[in-house]
Simulated assay, not measured.
Amino acid sequence: MTMHQAGFDQEFAGKTVVLTGGTQGAGKAIYDRLKTAGADILTAGRSSKPDDLEHGPYIQADLTDPADVKRFGEAALSHFGHVDILIHVVGGSTAPSGGFAVIDDDIWMQELNLNLLSAVRLDRIILPAMIRNGQGVVLHTSSIQRQLPLHDATTAYAAAKAALTTYSKSLSKEVGPKGIRVNSIAPGWIYTDAAKAMVSRIAKGGNMTEDAARQSILDALGGISLGRPAVPDEIAELVAFLVSQRASAIHGAEYTIDCGTIPTV
């Protein structure tokens, strides 16, 4: 039985949502899931509005830039008047491989701006309005790499996500008494279009099949208990639950969704 068949097909009707990273990957799946359930969503991206995005408000913005974060946040408040749900998905890493020695200050700041400070800055703009209304939901997207960093290429990314998880927990303690629920999720490998392209590159570069290339990634992660990565729709379903009234008692928590990649408690 799908969630829609279970009677939650319009559970976000009348809800206003601000979503970062909603143009591709898991973010796009979240956008589609909430939009189908009746939400009014504003999202942002570095490029012009994608053709496959549902009709709705959109801001072209680079959320690593504090000025663009401010412009996006103020546009959201101006457009909606109030925000019910704020979901941070934007993130990633462009750091080169080579370990700690090749991560200079510029790379560190790029990773921190994208994976930590974009959320911190947007929260500062949106949360005061939520507090005035006495209600709201904030969801941050961390990563299992906060527990399982890959030292060759993602040390800065992992550190930024660890900081985001800690920030999220601290924020929950501060704003929970004011009616705002704050949680985070920690995805593992998600099989997005970008992940598929990476598999193809590895297969081509290593003169191997795509199945072998996928297995090489699984091996690098130490194995995944379910034998596969999560898909974007699975991430979207977890997010839809956590930002809904069905999760009204869940606060200050982080949910791992990694198909069993983390092998310990």
Rank of each mutant, 00 (worst) to 15 (best):
residue 56 G to D: 04
residue 114 L to A: 15
residue 72 F to R: 03
residue 59 I to K: 12
residue 147 Q to M: 11
residue 140 H to W: 07
residue 100 F to H: 12
residue 36 T to S: 13
residue 121 R to Y: 10
residue 105 D to L: 13
residue 58 Y to M: 02
residue 47 S to Y: 08
residue 139 L to I: 08
residue 46 R to M: 12
residue 43 T to K: 02
residue 121 R to Q: 14
residue 62 D to P: 06
residue 101 A to F: 14
residue 128 P to Q: 10
residue 34 L to I: 08
residue 45 G to E: 01
residue 101 A to S: 15
residue 82 H to E: 13
residue 128 P to V: 13
residue 65 D to C: 15
residue 90 V to N: 10
residue 87 I to G: 02
residue 72 F to H: 06
residue 36 T to F: 06
residue 92 G to C: 11
residue 118 S to R: 08
residue 102 V to P: 02
residue 43 T to Y: 02
residue 55 H to R: 11
residue 142 S to P: 04
residue 49 K to W: 00
residue 40 D to N: 14
residue 39 A to C: 09
residue 76 A to T: 04
residue 120 V to N: 08
residue 41 I to K: 01
residue 86 L to C: 09
residue 116 L to K: 05
residue 127 L to M: 14
residue 52 D to P: 05
residue 75 A to M: 05
residue 88 H to P: 03
residue 88 H to Q: 08
residue 41 I to G: 00
residue 141 T to E: 10
residue 76 A to F: 01
residue 127 L to S: 09
residue 104 D to H: 13
residue 105 D to S: 14
residue 48 S to C: 03
residue 137 V to H: 07
residue 122 L to F: 08
residue 90 V to W: 02
residue 115 N to D: 13
residue 101 A to Q: 15
residue 63 L to N: 05
residue 142 S to E: 06
residue 70 K to M: 12
residue 105 D to V: 10
residue 142 S to W: 01
residue 28 K to R: 15
residue 130 M to I: 09
residue 57 P to L: 03
residue 144 I to H: 03
residue 53 L to F: 01
residue 77 L to D: 06
residue 105 D to E: 14
residue 130 M to R: 07
residue 73 G to P: 06
residue 70 K to P: 01
residue 65 D to N: 15
residue 38 G to T: 10
residue 28 K to H: 09
residue 31 Y to N: 12
residue 44 A to H: 02
residue 34 L to T: 05
residue 46 R to L: 11
residue 87 I to D: 00
residue 89 V to S: 13
residue 65 D to K: 15
residue 65 D to Q: 14
residue 95 A to T: 10
residue 80 F to E: 05
residue 53 L to Q: 00
residue 89 V to E: 12
residue 28 K to S: 02
residue 99 G to R: 09
residue 136 G to H: 03
residue 49 K to S: 00
residue 124 R to N: 13
residue 54 E to K: 07
residue 59 I to A: 13
residue 28 K to G: 00
residue 110 Q to C: 03
residue 91 G to I: 09
residue 111 E to N: 13
residue 134 G to C: 08
residue 144 I to L: 10
residue 31 Y to Q: 11
residue 106 D to V: 13
residue 34 L to N: 07
residue 134 G to V: 09
residue 28 K to M: 01
residue 29 A to D: 04
residue 143 S to C: 08
residue 57 P to K: 04
residue 101 A to D: 15
residue 78 S to V: 04
residue 35 K to G: 01
residue 38 G to I: 10
residue 47 S to R: 15
residue 112 L to S: 06
residue 94 T to A: 13
residue 34 L to W: 05
residue 69 V to G: 02
residue 67 A to R: 15
residue 144 I to S: 04
residue 104 D to Q: 13
residue 147 Q to D: 14
residue 121 R to G: 01
residue 41 I to W: 00
residue 73 G to C: 07
residue 136 G to N: 10
residue 70 K to G: 11
residue 33 R to E: 15
residue 71 R to Q: 14
residue 78 S to F: 06
residue 119 A to Y: 03
residue 93 S to I: 04
residue 66 P to A: 12
residue 124 R to V: 03
residue 57 P to M: 05
residue 62 D to H: 11
residue 53 L to C: 01
residue 58 Y to G: 00
residue 30 I to N: 03
residue 141 T to K: 10
residue 108 W to R: 11
